[in-house]
Amino acid sequence: MRFEFVQPSALQEAMQFLASHQDEAAILAGGTDILVQVKQKKRLPKYLVNIKGVSGLDGITYNGQGLRLGALTTIRTIETSPIIKEKYPVLAEAAATIGSVQVRNRGTLGGNLCNASPAADMAAPLIALGATARILGPQGERTVSMEEFFAGPGKTVLGPGEVLAEVAVPPPSPRSAGAYIKLGPRKAMDIAVVGVAAVVTLESQGDRCRDVRIALGSVAPIPLRAKKAETVLRGQVVSYDLAVTAGHKAMEEASPITDIRGSAEYRRDMVGVLTRRAVLRALEAART
């Protein structure tokens, strides 16, 4: 492992350095992805730019506008934050599935998303919650929906010098709830073979589903929103059979690959099962 360490104290400085050393520089947040990649020689940046000294990229705020999570917020903070556990329990639930306490203490939300693994555990629940990414760059600021943030395995829409500053999550609707189900070989310390997040919103009265958003992890080149599966459920009173049908639609939308963690066939089957379960679990929680 060999690189130079750059420690900007202002965001402007960080963005300028990144923009002028495009192929040679990489951001270092918690380092739990990038240091592994550098040690394994999968990436050989000349410079690592530590953004932990840059102000304004950290912290959680919640108000009538919803939740704002600074990119440097650690996964452990998301897991244990009282306001997240109360208002967005699906995010705390997903955070708790990542790595170990040690990894969660260092790993950040921004790193999880910008590493852009199709298996990133924070991606699917944030897509299902309708979150947006606030991006800062040499050209100024822009906002991108979470489902449009990923461009392929290891790729995001971030351009030269751009930094993910913050993730914003809209306020939770009344009678809405989410669920995240991760399937892995071990209960801890393993990345998802398949991950499914669902957020269901019921009409103010009765059992009809006003809105639903479903996102799939590890079964496509990017964390994927399953829009056809959502269409099956939206506006309906969701029965078990309808949830099964939605699961079948999600299976059609997925394009999994075979790797050491599972075959494409198995992954596709599990998308069906886990979509059904996530929808029914979110539905149950939304009722109460």
Partner: peptide, 20 residues
Amino acid sequence: LGDCGACTVLVEGKSVNSCL
């Protein structure tokens, strides 16, 4: 590589993998 935990130390009271 962050997998085994043998290198765990506390930094400001929080457990971390000192290899990462």
